[in-house]
Design a protein around this nucleic acid. Structure first.
Lengths: 190, 190
DNA sequence: TCGTTATTTCAGTAATTACTGAAATAACTG
DNA sequence: CAGTTATTTCAGTAATTACTGAAATAACGA
């Protein structure tokens, strides 16, 4: 591996994290490298920087493309493929959430739904279904929230995050506000 | 494997998902089995149900305990260990979030912070630091939100989820509300 | 068309991770 | 204490996953 020390630490860390996720070490490293590079890199530059085989780079880039985490670019008068990550970190976050949902959450929901359709043949199965039902509705709740929130533009999403739990306090106030607004309009009493 | 079909599907699916996460197949299966069991199970019952070795069960249970995903119980006049999962799915969700944060997010934040402290020795490093800075502040934002929201009691959290993006609409109203409150207190003018 | 360059595929191998069985330890009981 | 039962440890092996190098394919340009 042939990288400036500061970048190398980052790349190595993402390699580690990669293996802690489903994604593997090389994929993590390539992603990290592209993420911090000022311009797009081609496969040979990645080979050079990370000291891994050309074929490994090819396969890992495919994987990153499958995850939609990487963009393919072309320079004029150069037929090689160059790769980058999107500039906007919020966009990256969205992509990550979307892909993980697609791979992990959706299949789980569909398995649960399918099982919940079946008729239990014993007490054990009956109890299991109840538990699966609880899990199912929790996950549904979370995904509904996610589907809702993911539509927000970045700065609204940022606001929502900054607000955090304070929202519930706002909520408590909501009823009052509503009635206040009403009463205000009606009689201005206090 | 020796389980009612409906439960078996669930267990197998969690095995799959387990390997898609960092957690492995057996760990996933054991967790699923405990999750749907009406009462706590001991190691031999797990061996029996899943058809795996006693030592594998022992190691996997350790792992689940390390994740805080499993509770150890003792029955009167029985010195064997029995295991369950918490009843409350929301609690399970919290534990999962907490553990993943601890293992994935916190170390990443600390690596990023450390790198950001260093002086860049080139343009490449300078640019890399900017990118890492963006990533760092995004992650910080998310964790701050998480730290905030995780304090909420379950039903408030549920409310917040149900509200979802509608919160931002409430937000637009916020300024009005605030100024309304202020003006109301001050002079009641309109 | 042929030669050149870029990329992918894939069989074989290396590396890692998961699992087992046997032995060790621990925690009790009579 | 010796005997019994429960649990853990760990060296060895099995299974899986990651990676490589060589060959195939693809996409040009002359």
């Amino acid at each position: 591996m042939n990288l400036p020390p500061l970048i190398q630490s980052f790349v190595l860390h993402f390699g580690e994290m990669g293996s802690r996720w489903g994604i593997n070490r090389t994929v993590g490293q390539i992603y990290a490298l592209l993420y911090v590079s000022p311009e797009p890199l081609n496969a040979d530059q990645i080979v050079e920087s990370l000291g891994i085989s050309r074929s490994n780079v090819s396969m890992s880039l495919r994987e990153l493309q499958a995850w939609n985490l990487v963009l393919l670019k072309h320079l004029p008068d150069d037929r090689r493929d160059f790769f980058t990550t999107p500039d906007d970190v919020w966009q990256i976050l969205r992509t990550l959430a979307e892909e993980r949902k697609k791979r992990e959450v959706d299949p789980t929901l569909s398995v649960l739904r399918e099982i919940l359709m079946q008729k239990p043949a014993s007490d054990a199965e009956r109890h299991a279904q109840v538990r699966m039902g609880e899990m199912h509705s929790l996950i549904e709740r979370l995904t509904t929230w996610y589907e809702d929130v993911k539509q927000l533009e970045t700065d609204r999403l940022a606001t929502l995050l900054t607000l955090g739990a304070k929202v519930t306090k706002l909520l408590e106030a909501k009823d009052k506000i509503v009635s206040l607004g009403r009463s205000k309009r009606m009689s201005e009493k206090d």
